[in-house]
């Protein structure tokens, strides 16, 4: 993937760039809003990571609005130290596709980036049936089968599984699950998500021996064959 990274903080920029290059992406870096804007408008990227507050008069929101006005639909992930809900809403309203607050863990950022790019690709063809290995779910009848065997799931468990399958092969963080499945934008203190994932595992993994849901240490979960 070709990624544009606009971030003024040297440490954070090289940290992200290094991580992304290691996972095989091509990263273009810009440290000011002006450079970022000219790069974003003149070249094609798969995704843009944009810091909200940039020096030199051109801030992230400004770049984002300019791009959207020009009809540029490249997915944009906003990065900001402004963590309040209203700030997030403002960022998403300006045309951002996702919002990650600082400080963040690299795995969270990467998971969200991949989710964004994939969402962008998937949007073209709406699917009614999703499969991973021998597990398949029917989005219309809400039925779940593994190895031809029917599995009964609660509505919320179904949504959790659906979210995992839609992001199959990617790391999904606990925050992403909480936002995507429960639509909660706060941080519960106890490990509620872990409990729900472990209940799901009881139903879709345990009777079949070979696990599909994997725990990724310090990051989250991944559904994979």
């Amino acid at each position: 993937m070709r990624i544009l990274l606009v971030e003024d903080d040297q440490t954070v920029r090289s940290f992200i760039a290094k991580g992304l290059s290691e996972s095989g992406h091509l990263v273009e870096q810009a440290e000011s809003g002006r450079d970022g804007l000219s790069l974003a408008t003149s070249e094609n990227f798969d995704i843009i990571i944009l810091d909200r507050m940039l020096p030199g008069g051109v801030d992230g929101i400004h770049i984002l609005e300019t791009l959207r006005r020009q009809g540029n639909v490249t997915p944009v992930l906003l990065l900001s130290a402004l963590a309040e809900v209203d700030e997030k809403v403002a960022g998403l309203k300006a045309g951002g596709d996702d919002y990650v607050t600082k400080p963040f863990s690299f795995s969270e950022l990467q998971a969200r980036l991949e989710a964004l790019v994939r969402r962008n690709r998937n949007e073209a063809q709406p699917q009614t049936r999703l499969t991973v290995g021998d597990l398949e779910i029917d989005l219309l009848s809400r039925g779940v089968k593994r190895a031809g065997q029917k599995i009964d799931l609660q509505p919320r468990e179904f949504r959790l599984l659906e979210f995992l399958i839609r992001h199959a092969g990617q790391v999904v963080t606990r925050t992403m699950l909480l936002e995507g499945v429960w639509d909660y934008h706060f941080d519960p203190q106890t490990n509620v998500i872990d409990v729900h994932v472990s209940r799901l595992r009881q139903k879709i993994d345990k009777p079949f021996g070979r696990p599909l849901v994997h725990t990724i240490r310090n990051a989250g979960y991944m559904l994979q064959e």
């Binding site: 429960w182 909660y184 472990s198």
Partner: peptide, 13 residues
């Protein structure tokens, strides 16, 4: 009910 459902599993655990 939404919140309960989130915590019911934890309570059972």
């Amino acid at each position: 009910q939404d919140v309960c459902e989130l915590y019911e599993a934890v309570a059972e655990e």
